[in-house]
Amino acid sequence: MNVMRRSVLRSMGAGSALAAMLVTGLIRPIQAFAADWSKAAFEAKTVPDGMKAIGASGAAESKDVVITAPAIAENGAVVPISVVSNIPNTNSISIFVDKNPMPLAGSFEFANGALPDVAVRLKFSDTSVVRAVVMAGGKAYTSHKEVKVTAGGCGG
């Protein structure tokens, strides 16, 4: 399933084609993504590529995706980020750090009573927007926030 999905994604140019396939249920990125660690998503070098790989292209901006992050981080190696989704039926929260070499930092799926509420500490290579993407009821929602980093987290 995963292999097929990737070749489908590769061979596809237009986002509209992807959307059409999602609607018709030809591909189910959420389930495929849940199955294992997605190399395509995590090794994507840009936010749009990463969003596409998790099936979240064209995510709608939403105030119900709440990011808590410091405005200024002195140490880019340990930036506390928390994300809460107030959108009903949230299945997962993914977090992107736009300027990182691989923007997708992590993806969290919730089941059996877990609340869509997660806090982690992330590395920021530089001052960057941090972006949360929520998948809920088959739709994607997003919000973002800027974190100014005074010392990067990927140096020696």
């Binding site: 660690w37 750090v97 930092a105 969290f108 877990a114 806090a119």
Partner: peptide, 30 residues
């Protein structure tokens, strides 16, 4: 994360997670 034998959270992570990472999750019904 499993609570009472049930999977509640599945996390897929990348290198951007800090060293010696700390995770906080919340679960209802435990």
């Amino acid at each position: 994360v499993d609570v009472d034998g049930k999977r509640v959270v599945t996390s897929h992570l990348n290198t951007a997670v800090s060293s010696n990472p700390v995770f906080n999750f919340k679960v209802k019904g435990a």
